[in-house]
Amino acid sequence: MKKMRTRVSEELAPRTRLKWSLKELIKHMNPILQGWKNYYAKMDPYIASKFLAKVDWHIRRRISLWWNKKHKKRKAYKVNLFDILQIAGLKTASPWGKPYCPR
Rank of each mutant, 00 (worst) to 15 (best):
L90P: 02
R62Y: 02
W67P: 11
F82A: 07
R61V: 09
R62N: 03
V79L: 13
L81A: 09
D83P: 00
I84V: 05
A76C: 12
I87S: 05
K73D: 10
L90E: 00
N80D: 09
Q86Y: 02
G89S: 05
I84T: 04
D83T: 04
I84K: 03
L85N: 00
A88W: 06
S64L: 12
L85P: 01
S64P: 06
L85Q: 03
K70Y: 09
A76Y: 14
K69H: 12
R62S: 10
K91P: 01
W67Q: 12
K73T: 08
I63N: 00
R74D: 10
W66R: 11
Q86D: 08
Y77V: 10
K91T: 02
T92H: 06
V79C: 08
S64Q: 15
N68T: 10
N80A: 11
F82R: 13
L65A: 15
A88E: 14
K78D: 08
L85F: 03
R60K: 09
L81D: 15
N68C: 14
L65N: 15
R60W: 08
R61C: 02
S64K: 14
N68M: 05
R62D: 02
K78F: 15
R60G: 06
N68R: 14
K75P: 05
W66L: 04
L81T: 13
R74I: 07
T92C: 04
R61P: 11
N68Y: 08
R61S: 14
K70Q: 15
K91L: 05
K75Y: 13
K75T: 10
D83F: 00
V79E: 13
R74T: 14
R61N: 14
K78P: 01
K70S: 10
R61L: 11
L81E: 14
S64C: 13
L90H: 01
S64N: 15
W67T: 08
I63S: 00
R60N: 04
K75W: 12
L65C: 08
W66D: 04
A88I: 05
L85A: 02
F82L: 13
I63G: 01
T92K: 05
K91H: 12
V79W: 07
K70I: 09
W67L: 13
R62V: 05
F82T: 11
T92S: 12
L90G: 01
A76Q: 07
F82G: 08
I87M: 02
Y77I: 02
Y77P: 00
R60T: 03
D83L: 03
K72T: 03
D83N: 04
R60H: 09
K70A: 11
A88L: 03
N80H: 14
R62M: 12
A88K: 06
G89M: 00
A76D: 15
K75I: 09
W67H: 15
I84C: 05
D83C: 01
T92V: 06
Q86C: 05
W66P: 06
I84S: 02
V79S: 12
A88T: 06
S64D: 15
I84G: 01
I87Y: 03
L81K: 11
K69V: 07
R62I: 06
K69P: 09
K78I: 07
L65H: 05
Y77W: 08
